[in-house]
């Protein structure tokens, strides 16, 4: 099971990084979304994996529970990463509408001031 989770994290990270290095905004956004998945699962996995041990306290039995702290942190991380994606989407949309292209790299421009010096 651990191998599956780890390989999933690795695959998503690799895919995310690759897309993040593309030159248009939309793949970059997708890449960052993938990367956030990977990071969230990674954080979650730092609490170690466990099956049928939800951190919901039970009155009747004295069982063990999975680590609740990473879960709480990841829960907010998921919501925040949504906020981040939304801001990115808005910025890239704005850039596209203003400049009429969605490239992320800025070509260094030679201005008059620079060439004078």
């Amino acid at each position: 099971m651990e191998l599956l989770v780890a390989s999933a994290i690795g695959t998503m990270t690799a895919g995310g990084v690759y897309l993040m290095l593309r030159l248009r905004t939309f793949p970059v956004i997708l890449g960052l979304a993938l990367l956030s998945y990977a990071v969230n699962v990674f954080l979650f996995s730092s609490g170690r994996l466990s099956i049928d041990m939800s951190p919901i306290l039970s009155k009747y039995s004295d069982t063990s529970y999975s680590d609740p702290l990473p879960q709480a942190l990841v829960l907010t991380a998921i919501v925040i990463s949504f906020g981040m994606t939304a801001v990115l989407v808005m910025i890239s949309l704005g850039a596209y509408l203003e400049a009429d292209n969605d490239e992320i790299d800025i070509e260094p421009e030679i201005t008059d001031e620079d060439s004078a010096t």
Binding site: I51, M53, S54, I56, L75
Partner: peptide, 8 residues
């Protein structure tokens, strides 16, 4: 769900 994190 499977890994005991229903909230997530």
């Amino acid at each position: 769900v499977y890994l005991s994190a229903p909230d997530l």
